[in-house]
């Protein structure tokens, strides 16, 4: 199938409704039969924020301002971004194998599955940002023009998630082990994201954090909220990383997608 660019676009238009259906399905089924339903996207991060704040400020006696932000806001910003990344990449990884029954029977552009899973995670993530706004208002974070720039790290994170998600989706079809490996890798990413500790306190291992593109995104996001402004080296690093993973992911997925069915 020599697919030209216009063909890809026409195909996307044809299946646009499917994409929205898959996204809605993801979100609907996640909260079906729970009493709070979609409200969980707000309650859950709020509760974990409270727990983490309690553990790290009350028990360990650390309090006050982190990176120009009140500790709860600092934690919440980090955790929301990280859990979007982890949820989206995990979802994308499992999406192709999870839709095996469908892939074997009906033709559908296969990227729909990882893409819809990432986008549904992104939508719930955007909803959960309401909590961050609420907590910031309550804790009197000074509004600043830089807040509007916080969209930039979020876009970079989305691009990164799509790239990583496509790569994982492709490989996990051929190697089931990847699901476990990625779980471990995510743990490493989480601990080097400085979600609940102050990154500036690390001096010797700071380079480890700087290598972690998710940390770069979180850092820029926090700096935008606190009004410090974008950190240029991190911005460049995460943008380049995002674009490279996106291109790799798209090319890899595109080249291998016809073999998926033989391995599912």
């Amino acid at each position: 199938m020599n697919v030209s660019k216009s063909h890809v676009i026409a195909n996307f238009k044809k299946y646009r409704y499917l994409l929205s259906q898959l996204i809605i399905k993801d979100i609907k089924l996640k909260y079906r039969r729970s009493y709070l339903g979609i409200l969980w996207t707000l309650v859950e991060p709020l509760l974990t924020m409270i727990v983490l704040t309690m553990v790290f400020s009350t028990f360990l006696g650390r309090n006050g301002i982190r990176g120009g932000l009140p500790f709860p806001v600092y934690i919440l910003a980090g955790r929301l971004l990280y859990s979007f990344f982890s949820g989206a990449t995990k979802g994308a990884m499992k999406s192709v194998r999870g839709s095996a029954a469908m892939i074997k029977k009906v033709y559908v552009p296969k990227y729909m599955y990882p893409l819809s899973s990432i986008l549904s995670n992104f939508i719930t993530f955007l909803i959960s940002l309401i909590v961050l706004i609420g907590v910031s208002v309550v804790l009197k974070v000074q509004p600043d023009w830089w807040m509007f720039a916080s969209v930039i790290p979020l876009i970079i994170l989305l691009i990164m998630s799509v790239g990583v998600g496509l790569i994982l989706a492709t490989f996990s079809v051929f190697f089931r082990d990847l699901e476990y490996l990625w779980g471990v890798a995510l743990m490493l990413i989480m601990y080097t994201c400085a979600i609940f500790y102050d990154a500036d306190r690390l001096s010797k291992y700071k380079w480890l954090l700087n290598c972690n593109p998710v940390y770069g995104v979180i850092r820029n996001f926090r700096d935008c909220i606190s009004g410090v402004g974008l950190h240029m080296p991190s911005l460049i690093y995460t943008t380049v990383f995002g674009i490279i993973t996106l291109i790799t992911g798209v090319v890899l997925f595109y080249k291998k997608q016809d073999e998926f069915i033989l391995h599912l």
Binding site: L18, K25, L29, V106
Partner: peptide, 21 residues
């Protein structure tokens, strides 16, 4: 084959229709 077991019949009509493009 394309049905989602957790979805109701009505929801599956839309989903399956979308799968068929």
């Amino acid at each position: 084959a394309g049905f989602d077991p957790q979805y109701t019949g009505a929801e599956n009509i839309y989903l399956y229709g979308a799968i068929l493009g």
